[in-house]
Design a binder for these strands. Structure first.
Lengths: 330, 330
DNA sequence: CTTAGCACACTTTTTCTCTTAGTGCTAATT
DNA sequence: AATTAGCACTAAGAGAAAAAGTGTGCTAAG
C-alpha cells in the first residue's frame, strides 16, 4: 500500500469520525491535489483490500472494522491533551486528600465528559486481598452487622439475623476467635479456612460451635459476590450523545446492555497495555468500540474502560487513558 | 355529573390506559347501549368540564390530567393482585433470612417487572438515626478506614489519609474517647457535638487535640451526604417499555432524569398515604405520573415510588403498593 | 498514472392523492 | 328533554410519484 493510499485511508477515517457521514471522493480532491477520479481509483483499491466499505452501491466510503484497526495500529498519532482538559485531570490527581479509587473515578468521569463516551472503572478487589479485620456490631436483640475490612481499605458489611438458639454474647466471643485466626487470610480462602481450621478451634470453647460456625459462614458467604460488583460508571449515558444513537431501538439496546451487570463485568481485563476492541472484537456490543487497560497500584488492581461508537476518536481516548494510567501507576 | 357520565369517563380512561390510542365515540356504543351521537354529546360535556382533551380537532378523546385525577379519586376500584404476582411477593416477604431493606428492594423490583414502570426505593436513613459504633481500622502507615454503624444497621465507611503530624496510635486512642462520648448521638448532631463537647474532652489527654479533632471531623463530614444517597432502582429502565417512549428525544430525556441523583432524591416523601402525582403535579417529569408513599418500620423510614407514564394502571399500582406497605409495616 | 465526461444507482425530500377515523351540527324521532 | 340518524367537514397516515442531490464506475483521452 503506497504512501498516498495510507494518507488517504487516514483522511477518510478521520473525516468519518468527525463528520459521521460517508466520505465522497470529491471532498478529498483539494487535500490531495488531484482529481476525484484519482481518489476514486485509490478508494476502490482500499475497498478491495477490505479497509473501506460502502453503505450502498453509489455512496461514499466508510471505514470497515479492518480499516479502523489499521488506522489504530499504523496511522494515528497520539493527540495532545488540550490545556483545559489537562488542568482538570491534573487538579484531581494532585489532590492528596483523595483516596486513589476516588481520584480514578473522578478522572474517568471527566474523560467521559470531554469525549462523550461512557467510561467504566471495574475495581477488581482481587481475591488475593487480605482480611484486615472482622467486627460484629449488635444492632438489637435480633440483628447484628458483620463488618469486614481488607488490606486495600475496602469495607463490606452485611446485616445478619441472629438465630434463635444462639446469643449475641456467644457470637461476639466467637468473633474474637475468628478474628485471631482469620486476619491475614486472603479473601478467597476465608470460607474454607473457617470450615476446616477454625471450626475445631471454636469447638474447644463454645458448646454450640456448629450453629456459630454456620452463622459466620452465612455472614461471609455474600462478600465474595458483592466484592466483584465494584463497578463505577462515569457518565453512564454519555454515549447517547453520539449521533449513532438516534433510533429508539439502538438506544434501548445499549441502555439495557449498560444495565446488565454481568455483561459489564465481562469487560474486565488484566492487560497492561491499552487495547482497542473494535466492533465484533469486543463482546460487549458489536456496534461499539471498547478501549481498555488495567491498572495496578500496590496490589490494588482494576480496569479502566471507555465505550464509544466504532467511529471513535481513537487518538484522543488512547492518549487520555495513557496519561491517566501512567500518572496513577507512579 | 350524571351516573352515565361518570361511567363514560371511567371507560374512556381505562380504554386509553389499555390501548394507548384516543378513544372514539363509536367504540363505546355497545358498552352503553346507545348511539355514538349520544356518547359524543356526553364526551363534549366532559370536555367542557376539563376531564377530556382532543389531540386535534377531529380526533378521539384522551383524558386530561384533571381527568386522570378524577378517575383516581372517584372512579377507580382497587384491582385484585393475580395469584402469580401475589405468590412472588409473598415468597420474598416470608423469607425471614432477608433483611428488611433487601426484602423491600426485591419486592419493588418485582413490582417494576410486572408493571413495566420504574420503581425506586429511597432509604431515608434519617438523621435521627443514632450512632452505634465508630471504629478506626488501620490499613497501612498512611491510611485508616473509619467505619460507622447506626442503630438501623447501616454501615458507612471512608478511607482517610493520616496527616503527617499525627500517628495511628494517637488516632486510635482518640477514637476510644470519641466512641465513648458519641455513641447514642443522632447522626445529624455528630459534627456539632464533636466540635463543642468532645474537643475539650480530647484536649485533656491529647496534646495534638486540634489536629486530631479535625481528622475526625474530616472522617465524619461525608457521612451525612453519603447517607442521603441511599437510592435503589428496581428495573430502572423498565419504563422504556411503555409505548410513549418511542422517540430518541423522549427516551434520552427520561434517562437523563433518572440518572440525575438530585432529581430522584427529590421524590422522597414522608406521607403515610399513597399519593398520586400526575404530570405537572410531580416535579420529576411532567409526562409521567409518580405514585409514592413512605414506610416506617421501627424507626427505619423510606420512600417507595413508582414512575410511569400518565397513562398508568393506577388501580394496579396503588393496590400493589398498598399490599407491600401494609405487609412491611406489621 | 491521471483526469474529464457521462450514464447510472441509490437516498432523501417534497408533493400529491386517497383513505380512514373521527368530530360537530342539524333535524327528526322517541 | 333526551336520543338518534344523517351529513359535511377535519386531520392524520399511508402510498406513490416526482425531483433533487450525492456519489459511483467506466471509458477514453491526455
Amino acid at each position: 500500500m503506497g504512501d498516498r493510499q495510507n494518507k488517504l485511508l487516514k483522511a477518510i477515517v478521520e473525516s468519518y469520525i468527525k463528520n459521521v457521514k460517508p466520505v465522497g471522493s470529491k471532498s478529498l480532491c483539494e487535500m490531495f491535489n488531484c482529481s476525484s477520479a484519482t481518489i476514486r481509483n485509490d478508494m476502490s483499491y482500499l475497498e478491495e483490500l477490505g479497509y473501506l466499505e460502502k453503505t450502498h452501491t453509489s455512496s461514499g466510503r466508510v471505514p470497515s472494522e479492518k480499516g479502523y484497526n489499521y488506522y489504530v495500529e499504523n496511522l494515528m498519532k497520539p493527540k495532545e491533551i488540550t490545556g483545559e482538559d489537562f488542568m482538570k485531570l491534573q487538579t484531581i490527581l494532585n489532590n492528596k486528600e483523595l483516596v486513589l479509587t476516588d481520584a480514578i473515578n473522578k478522572c474517568m468521569e471527566i474523560i467521559s465528559d470531554i469525549t462523550n463516551y461512557t467510561s467504566i472503572v471495574l475495581g477488581k478487589n482481587s481475591n488475593n486481598n487480605i482480611l484486615k479485620q472482622i467486627s460484629i456490631i449488635p444492632i438489637d436483640n435480633k440483628r447484628v452487622v458483620a463488618v469486614l475490612v481488607t488490606n486495600t481499605g475496602h469495607v463490606e458489611n452485611k446485616q445478619v439475623i441472629i438465630p434463635d438458639d444462639i446469643s449475641i454474647k456467644e457470637i461476639v466471643k466467637t468473633c474474637e476467635i475468628v478474628n485471631k485466626s482469620l486476619v491475614g487470610t486472603p479473601l478467597n480462602e476465608v470460607l474454607e479456612k473457617l470450615e476446616f481450621e477454625i471450626k475445631p478451634e471454636i469447638a474447644k470453647t463454645m458448646a454450640k460451635y456448629e450453629e456459630l460456625c454456620s452463622f459466620f459462614y452465612d455472614a461471609f458467604s455474600d462478600f465474595k459476590e458483592k466484592n466483584e460488583d465494584d463497578i463505577f460508571f462515569g457518565g453512564k449515558t454519555n454515549i447517547l450523545k453520539q449521533p449513532e444513537y438516534n433510533e429508539p431501538e439502538k438506544i434501548k439496546e445499549i441502555i439495557s446492555k449498560l444495565e446488565n451487570i454481568e455483561l459489564v463485568k465481562n469487560i474486565e481485563t488484566d492487560d497492561k497495555e491499552i487495547k482497542v476492541y473494535i466492533g465484533n472484537e469486543n463482546n460487549f456490543d458489536p456496534d461499539t468500540t471498547v478501549i481498555k487497560t488495567s491498572y495496578n497500584v500496590n496490589g490494588e488492581v482494576g480496569t479502566l474502560a471507555i465505550i464509544g461508537p466504532k467511529r471513535m476518536e481513537y487518538d484522543k481516548v488512547v492518549t487520555l487513558l495513557n496519561f491517566l494510567k501512567n500518572y496513577i501507576e507512579r
